[in-house]
């Protein structure tokens, strides 16, 4: 059993990280009061932007690590720009946030494949090499923990975990974070206290765009290695993790780890004899069924931001 966990662990972490950062982005958006169902589309845009940047730069630049980080940066920038469409529709025009988010998803899915097909012909964009896993010196030789956490890790994993802790700090301890949360709970009160609700919500949505873009890029630059026009529903899974994690950073970490492990176990079940006895369909649908059950369990004590999904009407009481 232990060897199985040891074998699965690195894969599960690699799978968890894009989900984690995307869900964290969704957290900023929803905590500011804007439901962002467009996470999937924003991830796709990020994946596309990083794939195309790295694809071209790897031909010309010799420093491969730098190229990969530039790819991540490109994904962040495109994610932010694209999220502005959602912000504009839902903040300035009081559009239905779910419909606007759906439009974001549809535009991203169609536009990226359209452009990719135009660039490469097949619609897939391949990168020569992504981030490579490495052992962390000293720490990796600690028994048990060293094997689990510090061997075969990606530098990006540590970067995202850092972002997670900074985000948790910002949300709970800084003026900006507290204001952001107040806009998601009772925007009218926040406005009366002198907070510019619209500006805060814009920053919430833009952070979600940046993080979701990053999430999409990490899929390409760590385990996928190729852009194929979709992120296979991970954006929606991130949305589910956000609810599962009850809109708190550490809750989201736990939820995404759960999904990471559940999916990895389902993926590798056929090569591990102990798991082979379970029909694969059970393992595959397990995370989704558990999410549904979790939603039922949490329904009574849900800590959803109260104003999320409602257009801001400053005169409403």
């Amino acid at each position: 059993m232990w060897t199985i966990i040891e074998q699965i662990f690195p894969y599960a972490i690699v799978f968890t990280i894009p989900l984690l950062i995307t869900a964290l982005g969704g957290l900023f958006s929803e905590r500011s009061g804007i439901v962002n169902i467009g996470l999937e589309g924003l991830m796709i845009m990020g994946a596309f932007a990083s794939a195309i940047t790295v694809h071209y730069l790897q031909e010309t630049m010799s420093n491969h690590t730098l190229v990969l980080w530039i790819g991540l940066l490109a994904a962040v920038v495109i994610g932010i720009i694209f999220s502005l469409l959602h912000a504009f529709a839902s903040i300035n025009l009081s559009a239905d946030q779910i419909i606007s988010g759906t439009a974001i998803n549809m535009i991203a899915m169609a536009l990226t494949v359209f452009l990719a097909r135009n660039i490469t012909g097949s619609g897939n964009i391949r990168i020569t090499s992504g981030f490579s896993p490495m052992d962390i010196p000293v720490l990796s030789s600690i028994p048990v923990i060293g094997d689990l956490f510090f061997t075969k890790t990606y530098p990006t994993t540590w970067f995202i975990l850092l972002v997670l802790f900074i985000s948790a700090f910002i949300l709970n301890k800084t003026k900006f974070g507290l204001r952001l949360k107040s806009c998601g709970e009772f925007p009218q009160a926040a406005e009366a206290a002198g907070i510019n609700v619209r500006r805060i919500r814009y920053s919430g949505v833009m952070i979600s765009g940046a993080f979701a873009g990053l999430g999409g890029a990490l899929i390409i630059l760590t385990y996928a290695g190729e852009f194929t026009g979709s992120v296979s529903g991970l954006g929606f899974l991130a949305l589910a993790s956000l609810i599962f994690g009850q809109w708190r950073p550490m809750g989201v970490l736990a939820a995404t780890l759960f999904f990471g492990f559940a999916s990895t176990i389902a993926n590798v079940s056929q090569v591990i004899p102990e798991l082979k006895v379970i029909p694969p369909i059970i393992l595959k649908i397990f995370p989704y069924v558990v999410t549904l059950l979790a939603l039922v369990v949490f329904s009574k004590s849900s800590r959803a931001p109260k104003a999320a999904g409602e257009p801001f009407d400053s005169g409403k009481r």
Binding site: A89, A95, I99, T102, M106, I107, M109, F114, N118, G123
Partner: peptide, 20 residues
Amino acid sequence: PPELANTIIAIIIYFAATSV
């Protein structure tokens, strides 16, 4: 590329969503 159709539809939806 035939994905033009999806792109047009997606853009129509964005404009329909922002009908305000």
